[in-house]
Design a protein around this nucleic acid. Structure first.
Lengths: 322, 322
DNA sequence: ATGAAAGCGCTAACAT
DNA sequence: ATGTTAGCGCTTTCAT
């Protein structure tokens, strides 16, 4: 910046003014500065600029999701990035892989980089470590424990209950539940919806499935067991895919009904097409980003919880009658 | 940091030493500083630290891909993030959506944030705008024009030629090509492989398909045309999916052969399962990241081009005989 | 081993 | 409208 000032024959502050688009600069001076900037290929050092600025904003936010390569997280991430891009804000992203340690580490790493705020899908059982962090935090997909912030979640209980009622409608009375880690609020809520729809007549439940391979194995075990279910409710997209693989392997895809929670690409092209309770990850991401930017802009209202509705999409696998 | 120094009763510099883990501090002083750090919940301001440091590293890199929610880009992004995470490096990511303007803007935004380097899948027809950027750049998936840097690409020509030869083996002589934007080096190379395998007997080619809907429409038009192909080579994952949808719609999925370039989740569960030339996006991402970190660490050798092999995976759709 | 002073690149506050 | 000075939070350099 010094070089530019010298080249243009003006003071350092004038260069600063031009670079920041302030209008109180004579046109001819501004032009000279612009010329010098281009000659020297000068680019402002954002870090230095932010250090002195009053608002202290880095125009960077952090997004911590389960796995940016899972279609749900990827769509959510994409929506956040788009909303941020419109505001000239950059996005740091991280995948937690259900590891509470990574959650804390990455959150700390983002905080050290002075992100203006964070969007977090918590995986640990407590987020109290966030107290004392600088910017606002919006929790997405999962509720937080021991930390304050806005929350954007799907209507998990209602969605799961709707899925199970859909199976009941088609005559099923022996419906299994396959879900992921019970410490996650989503898993617990979807299980609660499952129990609510079934009243006292809940079927077998398998929890803590970490990936589609585990889900496939669990499904095979259930169906080969002494009291096989006639229908399955799969509480997460990878689990649904594991169940589909298992049913195929056993040749039972046309006799055992299946409804999955969370839609996934090509679900409609499988045979039979997979009935799902679709979430709206793009809307969740957009909503979380909008909420975060409102907070960053000074919104002081008490934390809100925003519930994004789910949609049952009947495609075939969930309409298999008993 | 001043507060910490006062609370611990030491000088500012001593705090700096402790925070940076320098060993030249008496144990009792270090302990006092640590205590003060915890009491005051002090966190070092990385931006300020970097401003004065000699190496000028932000420990942040940028990754610009076509669309972080496409499975190919998502897997690549994930691999880069993992490799970066192991080094305590954070990753800024952006989606270009085949928009050269966004490519330039996002690259500039990253540069302003002093990323130590960038990984870029170019979409514009020239990357000369990169000259004068601070850190090293590694091009991934696509070659750059007018800019220097290491390049990590799939063996596009060989992979595409292999796919088409596979169709020839099954008796097809009238094979269509469906590809995306011709300005992309990947699209051109895959088309070249297609032409090479067919010698003078190339079939109809449809270029510049931007998404699966466009591919679906193009496939329907081809098959309803006067001289319908007996087999299709789809040069990208979204295009392959569009072709699958079209074949289903026309009830031709068991009579028209299909080989796609780039694998996608659930390709093996479709009916018929889709034969593909699989790329290895995770390996591409890992390789690009490793190469970038070598450059950041001072590797001065001339730019290299690393070619990641592809694998033909016969699953059914490509083995439909004429 | 510890500290004082200078300065990284920039903008705020205050001149002029 | 333009320039001058101080200082953001930290690390360097150099002294002790």
């Amino acid at each position: 910046m010094n070089d530019v000032a010298r080249t243009a024959g003006v003071s350092l502050k004038t260069v600063s003014r031009v670079v920041n688009g302030e209008t109180t600069v004579a046109p001819d001076l501004a032009a000279r500065v612009q010329a010098a900037v281009e000659t020297l290929d000068y680019r402002r050092h954002l870090g230095a600029s932010l250090l002195r600025r009053n608002d202290r904003r880095t125009r960077t936010i952090g997004v911590l999701l389960e796995d940016v390569s899972n279609p749900f997280s990827a769509a959510l991430h994409r929506a956040v990035a788009d909303e941020a891009g419109m505001r000239g804000v950059q996005v740091l992203a991280g995948s937690l892989d259900e590891d509470p340690g990574r959650e804390r580490e990455l959150a700390a790493a983002f905080a050290q980089r002075q992100t203006d705020g964070m969007i977090l899908a918590p995986t640990g059982s407590s987020q109290s470590y966030l107290s004392g962090f600088r910017g606002p935090i919006v929790f997405v997909d999962r509720r937080a424990t021991g930390a304050l912030g806005d929350t954007v979640v799907s209507t998990n209980v209602a969605g799961a209950a709707g899925a199970v009622r859909h199976l009941l409608t088609h005559g099923h009375r022996h419906i299994a539940y396959l879900g992921n880690l019970r410490r996650l609020t989503t898993a617990r809520e979807r299980h609660r919806g499952y129990l609510r729809a079934l009243g006292g007549r809940a079927g077998p439940a398998v929890h803590d499935l970490l990936d589609s391979v585990a889900a496939e194995r669990a499904t095979v075990a259930l169906l080969r067991g002494s009291d096989p279910p006639t229908a399955i409710f799969a509480a997460q997209n990878l689990i649904t895919i594991g169940v589909v693989r298992a049913l195929r392997r056993l040749g039972r895809e046309r006799t055992v009904a299946l409804v999955g929670f969370d839609d996934f690409p090509l679900a409609d092209l499988l045979d039979p097409p997979v009935t799902v309770v679709a979430q709206d990850p793009a809307r969740m991401g957009r909503t979380a980003a909008l909420t975060l930017f409102e907070r960053i802009d000074g919104d002081k209202r008490p934390p809100r919880e925003i519930r994004i509705p789910t949609t049952l999409i009947p495609r075939g696998s969930g309409e298999i009658a008993i």
